[in-house]
Design a protein around this nucleic acid. Structure first.
Lengths: 233, 233
DNA sequence: CCAAAAGTGTTAAAACTACACCCATGA
DNA sequence: TCATGGGTGTAGTTTTAACACTTTTGG
């Protein structure tokens, strides 16, 4: 190490798997945001948003910058996932990518409204186009991480609007965990944890009895966590 | 992206947090392997083993190569941890590092025997020297990951010899989780999972009744896992 | 008045926790 | 024979899982 770097350097990028959840009736589904490429390789193909890491920015900053530039999304939950370094993952040259995943609720963030994001679109996780590079693998790892982490960290709330019904929350878990949950047991468990608080509001514009809206109480969660409480669904 | 890379590139390294567990009596402790640096910066200081990623090798390959070169350790459990990209983490230039953690049992791998590893040594996690760069932070993240993962993945066995007593296994969990466990409940739970099999051997050279030796049955673990079984301590 | 979803308790089974003594062995 | 850890069972408590009907509301 007398010279800092004697060898050719791999290029370094970030890629972001943005999960969105649609909590509208009927449409309830986990989605991923993809970008349509306008350059080779994979021209016209779909890929994860991402790009090169600049020498003066952190990895997190790079991920946030690319996300804002390519999709218009800002101030959303973002977490590093895994770093992918297969030698031939990019056909042009050696590129190592630090993958992130992000969570966002689809009601609050209208992607179409953003002019920078003309070629960005949401796809259901269960029905994706073929992806460029190794992006399908990255997406699979992200999906697996989400499935695992949602059970013991309260990240699921990031996918819901600020005010949500217990039915939406249960459905979110059913979609992510891919199994049915018992309504009474689910409500009992969630409410017993005391981190989901009732509001005075109820749903609007539904063709049946309107459900009460709840919200995630992060302050109480942080307080309980300090006391050794463990979130678990 | 018409040219693949318009900007200066960060350098890319791997660093490895090697955990070792000493299952001898009295000495039972979680340790970390460190390398004494012989070049600036931090000359003479202790650091994690690691080095630059070459353009023709994967990240895993780089980690295994550096581990072998600097410590002589081969064929051990190795898993990617997290990628650290703070801009000033290396005072010389921008260096992003992909951190790994490795698990090894101290009985099976005598580090001193390896001639390449003159300046490598084991330190108890509870009593470490000051570390170079951001290596203390990396180590803390690795320790946290180990603590979390050991409870729901059978990675603890990587820290024990092939044949071990239930006392050693329990003690390992006590050291990692940093709390006492009930002997009868622990044995009941472990044996009920059927992935730890009794052997016909017993301990040798102990000044009291010799305990039975057990071993981790990976085949059964894999079979049960496919059927939906979840390891949990 | 009908369709749709909201909301609500009980019981049985399983898992977890706490706890103390006798046994085998080598020194 | 003594010191050291090996090895074992039970009972009370908590947690989980299974399960169905009445209520509210808008159309």
């Amino acid at each position: 190490m007398s010279h800092a770097y004697e060898f050719a350097r791999p290029a370094l990028t970030v890629d972001i798997v943005v999960f969105g959840f649609d909590s509208e009736y009927g449409e309830e589904d986990l989605k991923v945001m993809l970008i349509q490429r306008d350059l080779a390789p994979y021209e016209g193909g779909w890929a994860l948003p991402g790009g090169f890491v600049r020498v003066e920015e952190t990895l997190d900053d790079a991920a946030r910058r690319e996300l804002a530039e390519e999709t218009g999304l800002k101030d959303i939950y973002l977490e590093q996932l895994y770093t992918f370094g297969a030698v031939e993952r990019d056909p042009r040259e050696r590129v190592v990518t630090v993958a992130y995943y992000a969570l966002v609720n689809l009601e609050g963030h209208d992607i179409q409204a953003n002019t920078d994001a003309r070629n960005a679109a949401w796809f259901p996780v269960s029905d994706l186009p073929e992806l460029a590079f190794d992006h399908q693998e990255i997406l699979d790892v992200a999906h697996e991480r989400l499935r695992g982490k949602v059970r013991y960290q309260p990240i699921g709330f990031e996918l819901l609007p600020d005010r949500f019904t217990l039915r939406q929350l249960q459905h979110l878990y059913e979609v992510i965990l891919d199994r049915e949950l018992d309504k009474r047991n689910f409500r009992k468990k969630v409410l017993a944890m005391e981190i989901v608080k009732e509001t005075k509001e109820i749903e609007k514009d539904v063709a049946h009895r309107a459900a009460r809206l709840y919200h995630f109480d992060k302050r109480t969660y942080d307080r309980l966590t300090k006391q050794g409480f463990n979130f678990e669904i």
